[in-house]
Design a protein around this nucleic acid. Structure first.
Lengths: 191, 191
DNA sequence: ATTCATTTAGGACGCTTGTCCTATAAAGTG
DNA sequence: CACTTTATAGGACAAGCGTCCTAAATGAAT
């Protein structure tokens, strides 16, 4: 069940393909080609395509948890930790310009497909949002920590959508700076 | 070639279906069912599915132009006109919560499909952005009018994505208010 | 070495997709 | 009326899809 197991390879390849092409547009043949495995053999490891999607979301949730834990460890203060979140837009800039935000684009696609897994995809949003809420709370913003967190998530989603559409690096940098400033001004006026 | 022509009905039905289900997930059979027309008969009016998409984008561009013209006429000042833009999030709230922003979700889907029409879908963004740029310029913000416009478009895109994910009316109202405040503070400090 | 469970390959299935073709119906024109 | 253009219906098509099935290969245990 490790990373190099067949199952692990399938999930990894599906994860990337779902991100770059979308869930529905990715066929079993696509994944099979990426993993170099027989098409019919999928059904030994997964019982349906939706099953693979579930596994992909599991993987993304796990990776997100790891990321948040790393930020928790690396950042000295809640402010610098929030800065880590904002900086994903720069760190993953090229991927975001090419395929959008992996969280937002999946959530939207599953909504349009009326897919059962839509709530599960939203867990990724919740993960970021809860973590950010914790950071703002640690900064003394006890009453409106969640509102501030949601605001930040929304801002970054908007930047991701327009970065994907216009592919303008200056725009991304400007918005990242603006978000950083916004954080600064909102942690001094506590509660 | 009017609204009640077969062609017009096809484009109208396709427009709604592309919005609620997505472009790729909408089949000819879906549109045929909505318009109550023979499936094979499409190819008298359009030569391919991409051709219908083109017509749908044309329609959306035209409708957007009408909308902007209406705002231009209705709003007394550039500030109130910008307010009209922000208020789409409230006016179209239920649709946005159900299917996201029609502009943003189409742009993202076409990116993932590596579809030829992606640049055309971006024209919708440009339409709003240019109009907003004009409003900010009319408020004296000659040097950074476009940056302010892009910021506002990004903010509203982010709100749309999260409104779709979380379906939280209070969140939308809060963000709309915050955007309105942001406009107020950015028009007094001219240039 | 033999047995047995695990894993894989590859084809067959039924269905849906976008596209195309041809026959028919309706509308317009002389 | 006859005749031509416009519009529609409905089936045929090849290809792709997710899914399923069976036989073969692999590997571990006795």
């Amino acid at each position: 069940m490790s990373k190099h197991s067949t199952r692990g390879q399938i999930v990894e390849a599906a994860d990337e393909l779902f991100y770059s092409q979308g869930f529905e547009a990715t066929s079993f043949a696509d994944i099979a080609g990426a993993v170099q495995i027989s098409r019919g053999n999928f059904y030994y490891h997964f019982k349906s395509k939706d099953d693979i999607l579930d596994a992909v979301i599991d993987r993304r949730i796990a990776k997100t948890r790891e990321l948040l834990d790393r930020w928790e460890a690396d950042g000295d203060t809640p402010e610098t930790r929030i800065g880590c979140f904002i900086l994903i837009l720069v760190t993953n800039q090229s991927k975001i310009m090419a395929h959008g935000c992996p969280v937002g684009t999946l959530a939207i696609e599953l909504t349009k497909l009326s897919h059962n897994a839509q709530p599960r995809a939203n867990e990724l949003f919740t993960l970021f949002n809860d973590w950010l809420t914790g950071q703002f709370r640690a900064l003394g913003r006890k009453n409106d920590a969640e509102e501030l967190a949601l605001h930040l998530v929304a801002r970054s989603q908007g930047v991701a959508v327009l970065a994907n559409a216009f592919k303008d690096e200056n725009f991304v940098r400007r918005e990242v700076d603006a978000m950083t400033d916004w954080v600064r001004t909102h942690i001094q006026a506590a509660n």
